[in-house]
Design a protein around this nucleic acid. Sequence first.
DNA 1: CGCGCGATTGAGTAATTTCAAATCTAGTGG
DNA 2: CCACTAGATTTGAAATTACTCAATCGCGCG
Lengths: 188, 188
Amino acid sequence: MSTQLRLHIQKIVSLTDSEFDFVLSHFTVRKFKKHQFLVQEGNYVNNDFWVVKGLVKACYSDMDRKEHIMQFAMEDWWVTDYQAYFNQTKATLNVSCLEDTEVLCLSLENREKICAGLHKIEHFFRKKANAGYMALQRRILSLLNNNAQERYEQFLVQYPALLQRIPKTLIASYLGVSRETLSRLSPS
Amino acid sequence: MSTQLRLHIQKIVSLTDSEFDFVLSHFTVRKFKKHQFLVQEGNYVNNDFWVVKGLVKACYSDMDRKEHIMQFAMEDWWVTDYQAYFNQTKATLNVSCLEDTEVLCLSLENREKICAGLHKIEHFFRKKANAGYMALQRRILSLLNNNAQERYEQFLVQYPALLQRIPKTLIASYLGVSRETLSRLSPS
DNA sequence: CGCGCGATTGAGTAATTTCAAATCTAGTGG
DNA sequence: CCACTAGATTTGAAATTACTCAATCGCGCG
């Protein structure tokens, strides 16, 4: 599990054993059951979560109790309510488990410590943030450009692994269409 | 103009004179006229641009020649086709001037150099990337949650300065609605 | 004045949503 | 093995929203 994190980081920067130990010592492990919350709307957000095993969703509930999915996160992905985490404000998103899930938790204080203490880790997180930024840009373009059918097809090729693990209802609310509309899309 | 950049950076990290000189020496100044392109679809993207003065749009042209606006950028904002810039691939976006515009250009090579040479600059760009990520998340939620009317109202409060400088047509394509629909929204 | 660009308006059309009902499926307990 | 249930998916029909196409309006500027 710590090996797994090390591999994840080393896709971007290489670390010595002692450097990695330093980094790892700032994380804590936690396990959650399906339906449990990692982050709950209205509460302060103490951690960024790196998913070791399992699957979660981060979503916003609007005034009509309708859910809009900000992101999914499975093995190797990072997730939290970043707005609330970085600004130390109360969450507007809920992050909850779609499966039993194990995560590594990183508090904002510890994130800043390891970034300050190890230039390479600051580099790692900069690269991660850039990659995340690009991914969101692609998603915005997809929302602006493409109709429901096209967005669904893109999702299929982009995240085939998720299809197996997530009910269509949730994919619909990730794509910004009603579940009925998604259901009516012609199987390409 | 260099003072302006220094102030911009110092909102996040403080630099000594020599540190700032080091950073500044990796930028080049360029001026563009209204309608000129900073980035053109199909070409490689050499620079990230920091707008000193003026206003540009970054947009994607779909198969029907319809434009979808990824972002605007005015004074103090950064803009380029990040997908192409970071991955050193050909641009899919066009970045062009809505006004005569002066920019500071930063090549990817120079960006990596100053990040490697000055931990504080790597920190600066990490913070910037995080802020950008959060902004895109808000925009995605707005696209998922809100109808045309609500998105327009949000735009008005979020970017009142842009309203004065940008034709409504472009705001429409930023918000993902037709100009006719935008025009029909009741003035709140 | 007349041109050109942007904004508006009208009318018909297409896409999507909503609400309601029916169907399917996997898991549970008898 | 079967009946039952909860959750997920599908289908139908009406209502709504936004789009397209076309025409018109308004205004600044040479």
